[in-house]
Nucleic acid binder design. Structure first.
Lengths: 128, 128
DNA sequence: ATCGAGATTGACGTTAACGTCAACGTTATC
DNA sequence: GATAACGTTGACGTTAACGTCAATCTCGAT
């Protein structure tokens, strides 16, 4: 069945070590249930892991990823807490917009470099 | 004149420490000219620094940023080198595409979280 | 001459995010 | 019931990217 996963299932699927997964747990990013001493991961745990790895690909620290993940779960606070949550959400959105901008710029630069590279290859065509 | 910069000029402009700038030099990412023992940065040096910081915002390591920056300068190699450069350029493009995809996903998640948050604030309107 | 503001070179300290053992428990299978 | 395959908890090691001194230099203003 696909409703439960061992630590090595996940490490194989996402190509990370079991040490890494345990490390995320130490840091409070995961909390799988136990069967004896062994860890059993639910689909929800697996989804959290995916979010962590996505954060990693975007250069977020684990602390940042944790706080981002916490933004996704049900509202559990009073007005003040909700307001500060909203602020944090918008800060992350701004961060992502900056990243989008940076990616655009770098994409253009790389396209430029690619063209120059192709030109150089073209100009030297057969000239070896 | 704006044609030369001291290390503290740049540290002030980009809000980083001088130690950081010297560190980038140690790592071979910058090579300012010297006036006696003091470092003098040209607009080109400043541009390189901007590229480094952009890479940082996208989660690249300094090694990665260095190799990306090296992709931008004139073609200086033979066909084989140009081909491997082209390969590296396309790898970075793929990396950026993955990041774009990740950002899209996270944006959607955050919008979702934002709505839930607003709903919660709305539902509890005046209910304090 | 000196004095303070900014520069330079070491050299050691720090944090995040794991890697790398070592020593031990748990199953299932032969 | 021994062995192999997988799991567990420490505990220490490692790398990147700086921070944090300390000692020295240099240079224009007083």
């Amino acid at each position: 069945m696909s409703t439960e996963f061992t630590i090595s299932d996940l490490s194989a699927e996402f190509d990370i070590t079991t040490r890494t997964i345990r490390f995320y747990e130490e840091k409070g990013l995961l909390a799988p249930r136990r069967k004896g001493s062994a860890r059993i991961y639910s689909p929800a745990d697996r989804a959290r892991l995916k979010l962590i790895l996505r954060g990693k690909r975007l250069g977020f620290t684990l602390d940042e990823s944790r706080s981002i993940i916490e933004m996704y779960d049900p509202a559990h606070g009073n007005r003040d807490q909700l307001h500060s949550l909203l602020t944090k959400i918008r800060e992350k959105q701004d961060h992502l917009k900056q990243q989008l901008h940076d990616i655009e710029g770098m994409m253009l630069d790389l396209q430029d470099a690619e063209e120059k590279c192709l030109d150089a290859l073209d100009g030297a065509d057969g000239t070896d």
